[in-house]
Design a protein around this nucleic acid. Structure first.
Lengths: 244, 244
DNA sequence: ATTACTATATATCGAGTAG
DNA sequence: TCTACTCGATATATAGTAA
């Protein structure tokens, strides 16, 4: 049905979970996430955490030190216990595993891959992305700090536009709230996690009251995709959009 | 929106991922799943698997032996490589972690909608529901006093059954404790909030040592669903089951 | 080519305990 | 109480190698 624009991921494209990470730390991080440390700072003693995980207090202490040193958690150890919050890197790490497992377990197509051609915008993408109120939400919701600029793509196959938009409209995506300052109002934004050229992580984002048509995708990413992928206007780029 | 019938999970209800399982094995199992070993037997050498994982060939060999011994994979080691398939236990283990992460990362309430056909039971649903020890717990845990009877549904699409059951088994649901009186023992029951035909609130409930197969759902509700929805045997009913 | 054994090195664990 | 150190025990890794 979606033959041309949807593919099952190839094995080689699977999201890597290792990245030099100690497997043992995963379970500690997972447990901390269960305890809510993704969204807030939690207060817990190494003893009680040890009991939950099934390790000794000493081992947990060592692992927490290690996690903090590796930047996967932010931690303050006091005489009363530990204040712990999973860092952005830690959340990304857990999310990679989550996305990997989701690909394994969810049968239905979870992603749409579209082909588009790079074109230059008017630079207003950078303007919006770097608005602090948007930026904060991007970091919170997407797990990365967006490079201040968007990669604009015009979808190549015009016949696929309607189908793509139907899908993207149907799914709630990730909502970024609007806001207003004294000058004007900034509308809400909807975005989806995406994988660009099979390797760069990012998100497609719309619509900041965009004046672009529905054949245009605006992509944000933690890094400058033009540089990272060596792109210039007119180049063809594949974007895999994750529906949820 | 669902404030009245849905609750955020308490920490204690989180899906356990340890269950005495060696964390190190998780990554091997994950990698095998990435390679497709959930759905088919794959052929791979310990050397190439070692390269993918970042371990030595010897360690992978040992871990595969361990995984097979623990029943998480089925394996045949030959001179040409290993034929590996993840077993049901292995899949359940991975799925527990997947669902745990899904609860962490997906904010919105998760539900599964299934289609079933009404059939008449033997009336023993009413017998159980109206047991005062069960009834008190239903009122406490579900927030409604169940009509003394169950609506029995046989799931229409047999392909959905496995996935549905995997999810319902993996999630803790809402536990109703068993009890005993002088005559016999009544087992514990697990239930999930549900929405029937998009409008009637209720819950799916299993298993009171049910003699029904895994393709059957028993639905309870504050009102008689047969009357309220004008149902008769053979009618098709949609039930949205809320996982937490 | 494989798998997987044995031996040895390394890493991780928990006990005891200091701050 | 806490955290987190040292240290000896245990577990897990890799090297070498047989089959």
């Amino acid at each position: 049905m979606w033959g041309c624009i949807m593919r099952r991921k190839k094995d080689s494209e699977h999201i890597s979970i290792k990245d030099g990470e100690d497997p043992k730390n995963f379970f500690i991080l997972y447990k901390l996430a269960e305890l809510g440390a993704c969204h807030k700072t939690i207060m817990i003693s190494t003893t009680s955490l040890a009991r939950e995980i099934g390790l000794s207090q000493q081992s947990v202490s060592r692992r927490l030190i290690d996690l903090a040193r590796k930047g996967l958690i932010e931690r303050e150890a006091t005489r009363d216990g530990s204040h712990i919050r999973i860092s952005r890197n830690g959340k990304e790490y857990l999310r990679r595993i989550y996305l990997g497992l989701r690909m394994i377990f969810e049968e239905r197509a979870l992603s749409i891959t579209v082909e588009g051609k790079v074109f230059s915008g008017l630079g207003e993408g950078a303007y919006y992305v770097s608005k602090e109120q948007y930026r904060r939400q991007f970091i919170e919701a997407l797990g990365f700090d967006p490079y201040p600029g968007t990669l604009n793509l015009r979808i190549t196959d015009s016949r696929e536009i309607a189908k793509l938009r139907a899908e993207l409209d149907a799914y709630p995506g990730i909502r970024i709230n609007g806001f207003k300052n004294k000058d004007r109002t900034y509308g809400p934004v909807k975005c989806f996690h995406a994988l660009i050229e099979g390797r760069e992580r990012g998100a497609v984002v719309f619509a900041f009251r965009s004046h672009y048509g529905r054949d245009v995708l605006e992509v944000i990413a933690p890094e400058c995709l033009r540089e990272k992928l060596g792109l210039k206007d007119g180049d063809t780029v594949h974007v895999e959009i994750f529906l949820y």
